[in-house]
């Protein structure tokens, strides 16, 4: 969507100024990064451009249920944009970022853009937070966006305009995500859905385990080698297709009760889909059931459609 100019990798910093909401432009680190852009990526050093970096440091927020007390990981993205269109870009970035969070949520309406009106802002600066609301439990800031003007007196920050080539002093839009609380928010989002079923509704693209496999035995007593083999084969097929599965691969259920329990476990783990292999049916004709965590229903698919059907489902756009 936005062409990345430079990924500056990860660093650990104790410099408070370089993490300050508006003051970071005056930090040594920021200047350093800018120089790095000019020197090692001259072709990308045009306006607009984009820098990314990862940083570990103390959190800026007071600890809460979402907020770990120890150091957090910052994901920082700096957009350098044409100065006269700074506001316009700022609004676009806000919108795009909010949509990103909404797309992976079980309740997109929980995300809101909250203007940081109380912050003391230098001239031409703007700041908003993207917050996820969890009702009475409170809000968590998942991303901070700020529009900052570069120090006008300095000529070091000049970038040529990508279209006209005219040098100009860009405006900076900085996005800061504190990864740990943000992940915590995403996880909680999966639980807070108001359904009766105790499922963890993680987005299928984010779920650590995308699919589970369960074999259903014909009789309670005898463990079928063929069914086990088939389960092993399907597991292998899915793993080769790079789908994420549980370590132990598959589970066998000897009766309906065991199957129900197994499915409940999958739901609570947030596994969005389970392939059900029935000893009687699947072994004879290759038809299996694809059971969905979200609808609690299963559709019939043929073994020959695996894994393409699942790959289509898990495609991330």
């Amino acid at each position: 969507m936005r062409p990345l100019a430079v990924n500056l990798g990860s660093s650990s910093s104790t410099d408070a100024l370089s993490l300050s909401r508006f003051g970071f432009v005056h930090s040594q680190l920021f200047r350093q990064h800018f120089q790095q852009l000019l020197e090692s990526h001259p072709s990308k050093a045009k306006c607009p451009t984009l820098l990314k970096q990862q940083r570990t440091g103390e959190t800026q927020h007071s600890p809460s249920i979402f907020q770990p007390a120890q150091a957090v990981t910052y994901l920082i993205t700096d957009f350098f944009v044409e100065p006269h269109r700074g506001l316009e870009h700022f609004y676009n970035v806000q919108r795009e970022s909010k949509i990103w969070w909404m797309r992976y949520s079980s309740n997109p309406s929980r995300y809101a853009i909250v203007p940081q009106a109380e912050l003391e802002k230098p001239a031409g600066c703007q700041a908003i937070d993207i917050r996820a609301s969890f009702g009475t439990a409170g809000d968590v800031t998942v991303e901070q966006l700020s529009l900052v003007q570069l120090p006008a007196e300095s000529e070091d920050f000049q970038l040529p305009d990508a279209r006209t080539g005219a040098p100009q002093l860009p405006a900076v839009i900085r996005s800061v995500i504190e990864l740990e609380p943000a992940c915590c928010a995403l996880l909680l989002d999966g639980c807070d859905h108001g359904r009766e079923a105790r499922s963890l509704l993680l987005n299928r693209v984010l779920a650590p385990y995308q699919c589970a496999i369960a074999g259903i035995q014909k009789t309670e007593k005898i463990r079928s080698v063929d069914l086990q083999d088939l389960c092993a084969h399907v597991t292998d097929v899915l793993l080769r297709a790079r789908l994420r599965l549980q370590q132990e691969g598959y589970a066998l259920a000897a009766n309906a009760k065991q199957l129900t329990q197994q499915l409940e476990t999958y739901d609570r783990l947030g596994v969005p889909y389970a392939l059900l292999l029935d000893e009687q049916q699947t072994l004879s004709n290759g038809l299996l059931q694809l059971r969905s965590r979200d609808t609690q229903l299963a559709e019939t698919v043929h073994i020959s459609d695996i894994p393409d059907y699942l790959l289509n489902i898990f495609r991330d756009y």
């Binding site: 088939l230 004709n285 290759g286 559709e299 073994i303 020959s304």
Partner: peptide, 21 residues
């Protein structure tokens, strides 16, 4: 399990959408 894959030929030419829903 090759024999299971081979039964693909027995699937209806127009597959129903979401059988079971």
């Amino acid at each position: 399990f090759q024999y299971l894959y081979d039964q693909r030929a027995l699937l209806p030419s127009r597959r129903p959408l979401l059988p079971g829903y």
